[in-house]
Simulated assay, not measured.
Amino acid sequence: MKKSIIFVVALLLFSCSSEDTSNNEEAMYFPPIGSSTWETKTISNLGWNQDAVQPLLDYLELKNSKSFIILQNGRIVMENYFNGHTASTNWYWASAGKTLTATVTGIAEQEGYLSINNKVSDYLGTGWTNIPLAKENLITNKHLLTMSSGLNDALGDDVSPANLQYVADAGTRWAYHNVYVKLQDVVSEATGQTWTNYFNTKLRDKIGMTGGAWIQNGGLSVYWSNTRSMARFGLLALNNGKWENNQIINENYFRNATTTSQNINLSYGYLWWLNGKTSYHLPQSQFQFSGSLITSAPNDMYCALGKNDQKIYVIQSKKIVIIRMGNEADSSTFGLSDFDDVLWQKINAVIN
């Protein structure tokens, strides 16, 4: 009799344990390629705070947002559009699209077309800057990925050779500079394909970012897409560069991209911003700020931040991706503003 009781108790414990494990290990969902189908979850299913949803939406609308999405483990929990924007409307990523360039550069490296440790002039030839050859040859693709080229960041968006001037040796100074866009030329030269064609075939089409396009703006190529396409890229980032069973970008490269990349701005990877570090620098400033980039956000978050508050937030510990597109929320002209911190206070009220 005692043996039977012990067996039943053990069986019940095993069943409960198995159920808990299966719930905790729910497979990450990836929306089908070429389909508008996208699985959803509800706030109540997740045990989140429904009462905090409307204050979050009110704040987003007040702050000139056009769209907002939260994914949890790949499934849509919130998807909202404001001020006449729709699910099919394209909007610009601004500098949040730098992470697309970082990703495609990594794909080209894994395919053997280039090395990020090689100097840029190996691909573009000498004279791509207006600095002495010995200094130009110090600049590698990795310096462009990490904003440490040493070129003058105070001369505007023009990246023609005459406007790329020396300030410091590569690797000795961090400065937010649009010279990163030269990586698109490096990829094009290395692969023998146009940047757009290589991007479309190696990244966009493989994860279903349909309808997006690179559009020239003042000499720079800026990506435009609908909000779900941005969410698809965020989901790829959440899964360390893997889409279902297809490793789009080498996992080791992607982890390096979302880890501190140099010892000057600890909150910067390969064109990704990193939260939870002990200090950070901001665009057009050499001042080092103490503390975390966005204090109210999770410490393990990495993010793509663009002008006028375009946002991709990725939090692996919570299996969450958050997208915000719109006009500038406040008076900030750069990718980061106090909007991030207040927005995260509102998000935390929902998800915690």
Rank of each mutant, 00 (worst) to 15 (best):
I5R: 10
A10L: 09
L13N: 12
E26A: 13
A27C: 08
P31I: 11
I33T: 04
T37M: 10
E39Q: 12
K41T: 08
N45W: 03
N49H: 00
Q50E: 14
S65V: 06
S67D: 09
S67T: 12
I70A: 08
T89R: 04
Y92V: 15
L100M: 08
T103H: 09
Y113M: 12
I116P: 00
N130Q: 08
N130Y: 08
T146W: 10
D153M: 10
D153V: 12
G156Q: 03
D157K: 12
Q165T: 15
A175E: 11
Y176W: 12
H177G: 04
V179M: 04
S188V: 06
W195E: 11
T196L: 00
N197Q: 13
Y198K: 08
F199C: 02
K202Y: 02
L203P: 04
G208C: 08
Q216M: 03
N217L: 05
Y223L: 11
W224E: 13
A231Y: 07
R232I: 08
L236G: 06
N239M: 12
E244V: 15
Q247L: 14
I249K: 02
N252V: 09
N252M: 04
Y253V: 08
Y253P: 05
F254V: 07
Q262L: 11
N263M: 07
N265R: 13
S267R: 07
L274D: 02
L274E: 02
L274P: 04
N275W: 05
F287P: 00
S292D: 06
I294W: 01
S296A: 11
N299Y: 09
M301D: 01
A304S: 11
K311Q: 09
I312N: 01
V314Q: 02
I315K: 02
G326M: 03
G335L: 09
L336A: 08
S337R: 04
D340P: 01
D341M: 09
